[in-house]
Structures are given as C-alpha cells and as structure tokens.
Amino acid sequence: MVQLEACNRKLGPSVTFHCESFSVEPGEHVALWGPSGCGKSTMLNLISGLLRADSGKIVVDGIEIQDLKEGDLDRFRGERLGFIFQTFNLLAPFTALQNVMLGMRFSDTIPGRDWKSRATELLERVGLKHRLHSKPATMSVGEQQRIAIARALANKPKLIVADEPTGSLDPNNSEGVMNLLIEICQESKVTMLLVTHERSIAERLPRLFDCTSLIQEDLT
C-alpha cells in the first residue's frame, strides 16, 4: 500500500529528512513513533503528498506520487486518503453533518445524492447521531475528534493518516477515540498510519515504526 525508498527532503539549511526504506501492506495498521521533531509528521506529509520529496520514491496505492501534478495530487488525496489531525481541524462554520459531507465534496468517489445519507451513517457509527446539526464549537473535544474520524472515512479511503489523533484529548477520551479508530479501520479493512509520540498509544497498533533516526543534521 505504501512504499518509501531512499526518500529525502531538505527541511532547513542543515536539516534533512531521510528514509531509506519503509513499506506498509494493504490493511496494515502502523504506528510511526518517536519524540517531537523526529520527522514522523514529515514522513506522514510526504506519504500524503502534502510535502514533496527532493529525491527518492514514494508509492501509495500503486501511484508514484512524487511525479503527480498539483491537480492530480489534490485528487489523489481526496479519493484515496483520509486525514485525522491532532487538533481535529473541523471547519467552524459547518455542522457535524456538513463537515463530514465536505470530506466528500472535493472528490468524485461518492455521488452527490448519497453525501447526506453516508455522512449521517458515519456519524451514527461514531455515536453522534444526536449531534448531526451541531457546530464544532458547541461540542466536546472527544466528540470533535469522532467527527474527524467520520470525515476521514467519508470517501471510503484506502489509507487513513492520523497525526497525533489523541494529542489533544484527556486519557478517557483518548482511550475511547483510539478504540473507535482501530475498530472502524478494522471493519473497513482500511490501511492506517498513525503518528504518535506516546509509546502506549503506538503499542496499541500491531506494528510500530521507530522514527527516531529520520532527521539528519549536518553539523559541519
């Protein structure tokens, strides 16, 4: 599903991200673990096409994304990836239902007539049937992250990329969100890459990739 080979990205005058080799099988759930600043989020951004590699090869779902044009990359993200962020990143002007529908708005995966029913179904699945028309600002952080999970699944993605999804949650909510995320990804048989700096969270996934040596600093 995901393959990185000799992938480089310059992050500063003397700082370079380098990943010699990394791969993920379809349906696999992998935690990218390491301390803050170790390059795990950079790796996630490179895989999701939010950053371009300076050299090397990145293949996601059979597509070499470093060669994609900007528009194709947008379409690639919309159709094949689902994003979950630390700060939920819901759009304030929209309700829970609209936020999930927005996930479908920018790709052609789900026909427009099905957006509402699919968004409702997903929100019901994450336990927010009663908050369909609530705006994010009126909801708890746990509820907001559950909306984000529903939105990430909206387009039936091949790969879920979750960047510190529990980073803004208290332990109770963190536990609940992780349980839900794992459960839903297993149900949907979707591949998941989860970035976390918490060892306990990382160890909940079947595979842990240690990111501590991804950043190379040239001190000369």
């Binding site: 999701s48 939010l50 900007e70 528009g71 947008d74 379409r75 993200r77 919309g78 159709e79 994003f83 962020f85 990143n89 759009l91 927005l102 996930g103 708005r105 920018f106 790709s107 939105r151 387009n155």
Partner: peptide, 10 residues
C-alpha cells in the same frame, strides 16, 4: 484542511 480533503487550488 480543504486542500488536504482534496480541494484543488482552483
């Protein structure tokens, strides 16, 4: 976020 969700720059 919209770009991450697949919105094109256009």
């Amino acid at each position: 976020i919209m770009r991450a969700l697949g919105a094109s720059s256009y």
